[in-house]
């Protein structure tokens, strides 16, 4: 069951389009999995559309409009075809991803073993941030760390815990420098998450601290 959602403010900013691309992508993917939040966004859309309807409209007599109308209606119709649904593959297992992430499956690099039973595959989203699919096998653990910037995470498939809470498929998490956590999965089938960070992680305990100088190489 989904327990962690974007705030109402984040959902409103998403509906308005006044939101960073990275945040928009993770919120969109969450909404694709969470009908509760999708309904909230739909409500804001209706409200914002009413603002446009009620706006004091410009005069229609402007000749620019007439020209525009003629140009538009000279254009052909566009027929769109449903796209093939790509899946994320890891060791012969295939995972469905929420619709907003599907295009990025093609932009996903090879899986590499990060630490112990944790795997990651980089996802190219340009300058919007550093994105990865991360898979924790049963018993896999990411060392305890905090964040210099923001870490946005969506649980795509499975369950994991991080010492702060337990998360399930569809959960949406925002972590920053006030959160120290150590994600691990005890789920039989492991856990696949999608994550975007804007700054490298900062490891906080034990030997993993030695990783800090290099952490930009791992979780950049």
């Amino acid at each position: 069951m989904i327990n962690f959602h974007p705030t109402d403010k984040q959902l409103r900013q998403f509906a308005e389009g006044n939101i960073s691309s990275a945040m928009a992508l993770v919120v969109a993917a969450h909404c694709d999995m969470c009908s509760h939040c999708q309904e909230k966004v739909d409500e804001v859309n209706v409200e914002l559309a009413q603002d446009i309807e009620n706006i004091a409209a410009h005069e229609m007599t402007d000749p620019a409009f007439e020209k525009m109308l003629a140009e538009i209606t000279a254009k052909p119709m566009i027929d769109t075809r449903p796209a093939i649904v790509p899946k994320i593959e890891l060791d012969g297992r295939f995972f469905d991803v929420p619709r907003p992430l599907r295009r990025y499956v093609r932009n996903t690099g090879n899986w590499s073993k990060l630490l112990g039973k944790v795997w990651q595959a980089p996802v190219d989203i340009g300058e919007a941030g550093a994105a990865h699919f991360i898979f924790m096998e049963n018993g896999g653990q990411v060392p305890e760390h905090t964040h210099r910037g923001n870490e946005l995470t969506l649980v795509v498939n499975g369950e994991f815990s991080d010492g702060l809470a337990d998360y399930d498929t569809g959960d949406f998490l925002v972590m920053d420098n006030e959160h120290i956590h150590s994600p691990h999965s005890n789920n039989k089938d492991g856990c696949l998450v999608f994550s975007i960070v804007d700054e490298p992680l900062h490891f906080t305990s034990g030997l993993a601290r030695l990783l800090n100088p290099f952490s930009h190489l791992f979780f950049k």
């Binding site: 992508l25 992430l101 932009n107």
Partner: peptide
Amino acid sequence: RKEDICSDDLW
């Protein structure tokens, strides 16, 4: 911005 995220993905 050279971001590879466009509105068709988001909405």
